[in-house]
Design a binder for these strands. Structure first.
Lengths: 193, 193
DNA sequence: TAATTTTCTTGACCTAAATCAATAAAATTT
DNA sequence: AAATTTTATTGATTTAGGTCAAGAAAATTA
């Protein structure tokens, strides 16, 4: 149940066996079936969810009624509405399982308490936030500079696992493209090979 | 010299008079003339810069030779290449003064040391990172959902000071538009009023 | 204040991606 | 296995914003 989580933590900081045992008690294991939601738009996001198994997505609907996927999370990744989670405000995102999932839920309080108890855990959390920030920065630059084809190819290189496991129209949504456009982009790429 | 900085800190955490004095010793005051740079693309960004006076920008040039402004920073804001600063890697951004500026420079080491010495300062730093993350998230959503006109109007509402102080083609660059497009957008808006 | 550089505007035209519409193929559910 | 829903493809057309080019107005510098 905790393999992925400890793998993720040990990549960034070192915890003793004892600390890892303490750690476990702060997480709530939770199974979600495909299409079930962890968070509904408008609610306050009280969990940061670590994905042990399966794949999740967060998305929102804009004023024009278009759905936009904000993030995918596969095994070993965290997913939450960080803005809502950190500042206790209503979420604009919905978080949903795309496959049957096994999650480890981490509440705001558990997070505070565990950071208090295990200082190195705070470092882990800070590094996660840094990485999330850097990934977002890259995504802004991508949205501003790349063509549809470049975006798709780069995503395929960076996260081949996601492209294989997620319906194509959701990849399109994540990249800010229409499904028809992504279909055409893919055709063009394969025509050239 | 430190008014803006302490104002920024006190908005988020409370420091004693003594702590503020300690704080001061960790910053390097630096004046930059218009067009001078704090960071050149390719260098490692060793400073997080706080703007006491003036206005700074960070930008990069993409493969196609187009310049993209990543951030503006006016009085009371921080500017750096966070990715380079936090992970000690070569920067892809250049950071430049758009007006004569007074900065307070904060090195990686000073940051670590001050966070060690004044724990509440670590909280301030964490809150800054959170805010930066949330702002970036909003910017991605904006890039993905808004028209040129919406982007410009929202920027004007959120940061009227920036629109007034920065050349229009730089606003365009920040919004991911061409200067001609922004000029036309502005004409359309004023025609309707 | 003349010269240069930077900034902004406008027109004509182009293009990448969106939109609308129709099918077809897969996957799920009954 | 039939019915339904989800997913993907393809064609015709539109459109928001980009590109190219020229000129004017401001701001800087000499």
């Amino acid at each position: 149940m905790f393999e992925q989580l400890f793998k993720s933590i040990q990549e960034k900081v070192t915890l003793t066996q004892e600390e890892m045992e303490v750690c476990k008690t702060f997480f709530i294991p939770k199974k979600l079936r495909k299409k079930q939601t962890l968070l509904q738009e408008g609610d306050i996001c009280i969990y940061n969810a670590f994905v042990e198994k399966g794949i999740m997505r967060s998305f929102f609907i804009d004023q024009k009624g278009n759905e936009h996927i904000v993030q995918f999370a596969i095994e070993g990744w965290w997913i939450t509405d960080l803005s809502s989670f950190l500042t206790n405000t209503n979420s604009i995102y919905t978080i949903e399982a795309l496959e049957d999932c096994e999650l480890l839920l981490f509440t705001t309080q558990a997070r505070e308490a565990l950071m208090e108890k295990i200082p190195r855990f705070e470092r882990y959390q800070r590094l996660l936030l840094q990485n999330a920030y850097i990934a977002n920065q890259a995504r802004i630059n991508s949205a501003l500079t790349e063509t549809a084809e470049e975006k798709y190819i780069k995503l395929g290189i960076a996260y081949p696992g996601i492209i294989k496991r997620v319906p194509q129209h959701m990849i399109a949504s994540y990249l800010g493209l229409k499904p028809e456009t992504l279909s055409r982009v893919r055709k063009q790429i394969s025509n050239r090979m």
